[in-house]
Write a protein that binds this DNA or RNA. Structure first.
Lengths: 185, 185
DNA sequence: AAATGACCAAAAATCCATATCGGTCACTCG
DNA sequence: CGAGTGACCGATATGGATTTTTGGTCATTT
């Protein structure tokens, strides 16, 4: 109760950011939930942005772990890529914080939140890239620059999973697999 | 001067929509530029939307013509597809009306304008699809449903041309060609 | 019959008083 | 002392009353 102040603040902020988004979360309410005074938050974090950043970093670490867990040492390249993409998309769709940020960006369109989401995208792309590089080190020939390949695969996957379904029937999994495979070759 | 009233209205509206966007164009100003009374516009068009629709239809017709002109009867499939995509992208980037609508959607985010842009996308996709179908009728085997292939190619092209360049050096044309080609196979 | 522009209800822009926010810092009290 | 507090500050957001502008109509004119 008396210890763990910083952790309580993080906990409270994480809940609030996930529930209400960035803008609608106030430092006063975080303080109240964490049962500390507002000033105390500022002994641990410089600003609302810094506090948020800490939570986003945790979330991204979780995402990386989910993606990591989906990989299998001996599975073929394209299967691993797809398993990872599945894990990432699944995470994106189920994590309250990311969902809320997405809504916030659409509804309020604030430059601040938009930039955060760009940052998230960047982290995801970097992770995909690192997986590609690791796989390519195993000997598979590199048709494209890993940065470009990561970009291409991720964008296509998002398009096929999310955007396509806005106006069509969902695609069968085999079709998606085949398309991703053809991009790796 | 006395004749051509309808044409003058269309002309004036096209200029105004291109210059100021949908929302910022007023029927009063269109009337003034066209040198007719406001009521006169309503003898030719039911509403602002209808007037706008007429202009959008013209623009889309122009786009189709540009795309059509890029096609060559005897060129290989992938070259034609890319020439057409080039024409479409070039058109999109150079036509004041579409540029302005894009800005408007970003800045004001009105549902109205967003819907219009979806409609434009739909028309472009339909056109790409029709070209694919025509080419496939010539005997090239169909790996995917033309609707899906059109969607995939268009999205990839946009991603490579526009989105990639937001954070990277532009890609050499051959790289883009190669990627598009690999999607058709 | 074709064209007009004063007119209207509805929507949008403008104001401004008030509330809320992120962040600070003099002070408290353990 | 020094970690912790919350009253306080300037800046920004909010709400809602008020004014302006807009799309659309229609009695009147040409």
């Amino acid at each position: 109760m008396i210890i763990d102040k910083k952790e309580r603040i993080i906990e409270a902020a994480a809940t609030s950011f996930s529930q209400f988004g960035f803008k609608a979360t106030t430092m006063a309410s975080v303080a109240k939930i964490a049962k500390v005074a507002k000033g105390t938050i500022y002994t641990f974090f410089d600003s609302k942005e810094t506090l948020f950043s800490t939570i986003l970093d945790r979330t991204m670490k979780n995402l990386r772990q989910s993606a990591e867990a989906a990989l299998q040492e001996d599975a073929p390249f394209h299967e691993n890529i797809q398993a990872m993409l599945d894990a990432i998309l699944n995470f994106r769709e189920n994590h309250q914080l990311l969902i809320k940020l997405g809504q916030e960006a659409k509804e309020l369109g604030t430059a601040e939140v938009l930039e955060i989401l760009t940052q998230v995208e960047r982290m995801i792309l970097d992770y995909i890239k690192s997986v590609i590089e690791k796989e390519q080190a195993k000997g598979i020939s590199a048709k494209h620059d890993p940065e470009l390949l990561a970009f291409l695969i991720y964008r296509t996957y998002i398009a096929l999973i999310s955007d396509w379904e806005r106006q069509h029937e969902p695609l069968p999994k085999e079709t998606i697999t085949e398309i991703i495979k053809s991009q790796i070759h």
